[in-house]
């Protein structure tokens, strides 16, 4: 990885791959579990909640927080791997 342009492109592609994976999870927990599959998931009861309702009012938010911190970790590692960390 001597060519800076090649290096930048490889870094960017790995970054995009992370984004696709993390945003898919983002979509599945909110729009999927909390909205589209809500009625179906509500048949499953956990801790007094229907699962679909729980995702819509609790679960999706917890996953959002986790997603950002996972992203921070992944990117810090990626920056280091490519030497972009200050």
């Amino acid at each position: 990885m001597d060519n800076p342009q090649k290096k930048a492109k490889a870094y960017w592609n790995e970054n995009l791959r992370y984004l696709v994976i993390l945003l898919s999870i983002w979509f599945v927990v909110s729009f999927g579990a909390g909205i589209l599959l809500k009625d179906w998931l509500n048949a499953i009861k956990i801790g007094g909640f229907g699962l679909g309702f729980w995702f819509a009012q609790q679960g999706a938010i917890y996953v959002f927080v986790i997603l950002i911190f996972v992203y921070v970790r992944l990117m810090n590692k990626l920056d280091k791997k490519y030497g972009y960390d200050d």
């Binding site: 945003l23 909110s30 909390g34 909205i35 809500k38 819509a56 009012q57 938010i61 921070v72």
Partner: peptide
């Protein structure tokens, strides 16, 4: 939320999920 029940979920998910977009994009 108290007066709309499940319908109010739009605000909960909408106003937190936006931060994932903000942080990643």
């Amino acid at each position: 939320l108290s007066f709309t029940g499940y319908d109010g979920s739009v605000y909960l998910m909408g106003w937190t999920g936006g931060y994932v977009l903000l942080a990643l994009l």
